[in-house]
Design a protein around this nucleic acid. Structure first.
Lengths: 253, 253
DNA sequence: AAGTGGTCTAGACCACCCC
DNA sequence: GGGTGGTCTAGACCACTTA
């Protein structure tokens, strides 16, 4: 019954990757490769345990997280099934800047105002539920469509998530894509939206009059464990942008 | 090591409720009752195990699901902490005016400007995908919180859905509730949001200066068969209101 | 060094599904 | 009845935090 921490059996990696994550990666790879087709059944848990050389508890941790990501679903006395491939595009989200640009056939670019590691202020730390002074990566940009300034985006990312950001070109890359590409799962976004008059600095960046209406959107994006990944304030010139979304509601009103 | 399925130790229930759900309920109750205040630390896992008379694996299942629900967060090496209270009641659709009022403990009322049957203009008919001239019920209101004007709401409802509307008091009733009460299922809401300067009429209703930033939200609400039930334009005084929502995304990015 | 969460195991029994 | 997922346990070691 002793837990012998032998060399991980699933992958020949060095160390730090937990077994259940390795198992998850293997399963996901087999699904992606088409080895198990959408809608079909996986081998029984006890069989997968042998194949991956891990315990059932560990295997189930991997399977469960894959359910949360919409890859699998379980059926009590029947088995594990691969979710049919046609997964909808993010339902219930605001259309992102990049998506809007694509829909309208415009070219999204950015002028980077600031892109550096700094320390968190008290307010910022509170938003991230971390100690004040904890290092944060800061990316400030003017976002444009076909060279026309549309919005100013001020984003903050915890330093341990922003590894390698120094070599990323944020004038063309999407911050969401970069974070997601690092393996983080942007699961939830708490959002507030209000209308405000533009202050002098903002008016300068957007080339509008001071006091012009501006759409002020603030988001905190978290992963599945509620860990904050990104905090952003985006201020859109009122007459140059329109947020779009489509909500579904399960019940009541 | 044999699992003796004794009578559940956590709660004196009959049977079917899993132990980890019972544990979850107990923990949630202690938090709700203020026994453990927001931001404070829970007892160590091994201690909770004894208190609840369950194994650590089971306890952690309960704790983990509470994290996903935004009630707790874990800090490696330090402990489990209760999430600050405000992070809990985020709606997964745009929070409605009535919901906002309830959350903030304010009284929502309306001053009805217009409430009558009319015919649709070209633009309105287009929104509803029906022929111009088709009868529409029109409800225009100034919406208030504790007597302070917050927004102007102009809503349109197809006449066949608005049966009996003449006898409804819209100064206190929610349009959503009335429609839902007639047996219609408000399933989906397509929304656009932008910032605009207030025109003279709007400024008069809201008691603000002309040109002040206003949040302009337009929605078309449909039932499960995509049939339009309601079209509304709501314009909020920029410094008196803030839209709130929390988006979830099922998978990747 | 002590305390705390994170991961992992082997084995057991239960509830559900299908033959 | 046999197969499959769902729940549960006791015990072990690792990694991080704090002192």
């Amino acid at each position: 019954m002793t837990t012998e921490r032998t060399t991980p059996a699933v992958l020949p990696s060095e160390y730090p990757e937990p077994l259940w994550m390795q198992a998850k990666a293997v399963l996901r790879a087999r699904i992606a490769s088409g080895e198990v087709s959408p809608g079909s059944r996986l081998p029984p848990e006890r069989e997968l345990c042998q194949m991956l050389a891990i315990s059932r508890v560990t295997l189930r941790k991997a399977l469960t997280t894959l359910v949360e990501e919409g890859v699998l679903r379980s059926a009590h006395g029947r088995g594990w099934y691969v979710t049919s491939a046609e997964r909808k595009e993010w339902p219930n989200t605001l259309e992102s800047f990049s998506e809007t640009a694509r829909r309208m056939g415009l070219l999204p670019t950015s002028r980077v105002l600031r892109c550096e590691l700094g320390t968190s202020t008290y307010d910022e730390a509170e938003a991230f539920q971390m100690a004040p002074g904890t290092p944060l990566y800061r990316v400030d940009r003017v976002r444009m469509l076909n060279e026309v300034p549309i919005a100013v985006d001020e984003s903050l990312v915890p330093a341990d998530i922003a590894v390698g950001f120094d070599s990323v070109d944020f004038s063309t890359r999407s911050l969401y894509d970069v974070i997601a590409g690092s393996g983080f799962h942007l699961a939830q976004a708490d959002t507030t939206i209000e209308a405000r008059p533009a202050d002098a600095e903002l008016a300068g960046h957007l080339d509008i009059e001071v006091g012009t209406p501006v759409l002020d959107m603030r988001q905190i994006v978290r992963d599945g464990t509620q860990r904050p990944l990104l905090s952003s304030v985006i201020r859109y010139a009122g007459d140059r942008y329109r947020l779009r979304t489509s909500f579904s509601r399960s019940a009541d009103a």
